[in-house]
Nucleic acid binder design. Structure first.
Lengths: 283, 283
DNA sequence: GACTGCCAGTTGTATGGACAAGTTCGGACG
DNA sequence: CGTCCGAACTTGTCCATACAACTGGCAGTC
């Protein structure tokens, strides 16, 4: 496109540069021009080495120069790969010092953080759900605010007891935005993932804001979860949005705190990785 | 504002290249060569515009070319700034289309997520702390594992009741790594931030892993927090590390769940923003 | 009118060069 | 022996360029 004359450069000699050599000899299993960009291939390879224990926490990564040689790419590409690892906290480092390995980060994909079914399945257990109630009721203040509708407007409410391998894990009380509620009413709620079904019907969940605190179980909670009343439960109130920012659902989940926890990994460089965690121990 | 020669125009005149022009006339309030890198100044400016409502969610950002002209920097620098905004979910976009504004993200700085004092101060309240106990005790299994020391090794333990404006908010039970514990013993623990003090002595907290669940208050908890026994509390177990991955502390905090909550903002594109939240309501 | 194909604009990827700023380490010097 | 200084190395920042891949709109065609 726009071609300025070479500015500072003197040498029009252009010797057989390293770039030339690179084109002929793709080093170390990288595929050039393939579907995966080079910087992704490199960051994946390094991430793999960390997960596989070939690189231990505290180890020093080779310098950028070293990685350039090893992978046969330019410094910019190496830095792009390292930036990705820095972004999710796999490595850390500062100016003048090679990057240090921090350790593997087990991030939970967004879909698993949103969908109980996907999460439980990924743990190798069988997710089930019992519909306690599904009805249209006028929105209370909290619901109306969350879904940005007027107070008292009819809203589809769903209460489900969610289990893993038939053992109760949490209670889910969800209010759907009108457009979504219409669709939910047509879905078999028994045990399949609502989000999966909605996705096939064009409802895309893109982001969510979750509020975590603790409450004591009510008598209904206690009965459903098979615990004494006033047992401490982990409460997660979730507001989920479409890609355009339209509110799609407002949900209050109550987890058995002795079975479930959340982890947050964060670093000074600002990346946070959140996971929902199950415990094998049980109660 | 910045007047470069029309680029498509024929002008092979060359000499006053854009680079040359840039050096003489820094456009739009950017300070070159200052302490803040250009890409940071740009991302901060754009972030500000989003927060201030000058750019609304759904708006399209100017193209990279447009931003280059507007800020008078090269494309690489613009892309570095945009990558930062993409990283925390402020903007999104894909190939071939200008970035779209997603909305402001109120991230809590890492220091505020770690330090009770810094957090409470940022809320405009006065943080205080009452030392309940400070002693060296042999490490139990959980502590030894978290700090990577052998079971039974002597460890400095600290129990504090933390208050905001003299109202109890949480109980903090911390075990320090040996090297850190020695230093903590020399600090006045009454009300200043331990982290600030340790920072001045060369102990840098760089990352943390936090585990969130809920427990019922013990009788000691209840007495200190002025609540009935078996009140549900939000429990956060925190393992904090130095930049080199060395464990520095292991802490179990118990928050009054009706005063404190955590929020998690996350998006399908994987960025998570975690905040600790205070509520004005109170109990 | 609907479809196709092309083209300009835009972002993603990759390279290369230059300088600034920080770390590390060893040797000279007191 | 300890301290200071500087050279070598390493990362951070910034620039310019080139090409590939994708989007959106316009013109031409059926």
């Amino acid at each position: 496109m726009d071609k300025f004359g070479r500015i500072g450069a003197i040498s029009a000699v252009s010797p057989p540069t390293s770039a030339e050599a690179r084109r002929h000899r793709p080093p170390l299993g990288l595929t050039r021009g393939g579907p995966l960009p080079l910087h992704l291939q490199i960051s994946e390879e390094l991430r793999r080495q960390v997960s596989a224990g070939e690189l231990h926490p505290g180890d020093l990564l080779p310098s950028e120069g070293g990685l350039m040689e090893r992978f046969g790419v330019s410094r910019g590409t190496i830095r792009q790969a390292l930036a990705a690892l820095r972004g999710d906290g796999t490595i850390a480092g500062s100016r003048g010092r090679p990057p240090v390995v921090r350790g593997p980060r087990l991030a939970q994909p967004f879909s698993e953080l949103l969908s109980f079914s996907a999460w439980i399945s990924s743990l190798g257990m069988r997710p089930t759900g019992v519909v306690i109630e599904f009805a249209r009721r006028p929105a209370d203040r909290e619901t109306a605010e969350a879904l940005v509708i007027r107070l008292g407007a009819p809203v589809h409410h769903l209460v489900r007891l969610r289990c893993a391998d038939d053992e109760p894990l949490m209670i889910e009380r969800t209010a759907f935005a009108p457009r979504v509620g219409e669709l939910v009413a047509t879905i078999d709620l028994a045990n399949q993932s609502i989000y999966e079904q909605l996705g096939r019907r064009g409802i895309v969940f893109d982001s969510a804001r979750q509020l975590i605190d603790a409450v004591a179980s009510t008598s209904q909670d206690a009965k459903l979860l098979h615990v004494p009343a006033r047992t401490p439960l982990l409460r997660v109130r979730r507001n989920a949005f479409s890609p355009t920012g339209e509110p799609l659902e407002w949900s209050e989940d109550r987890y058995l705190a002795d079975r479930i926890a959340f982890t947050i990994d964060n670093t000074a460089s600002d990346a946070s990785v959140v996971r929902r965690l199950g415990r094998e121990g049980g109660r």
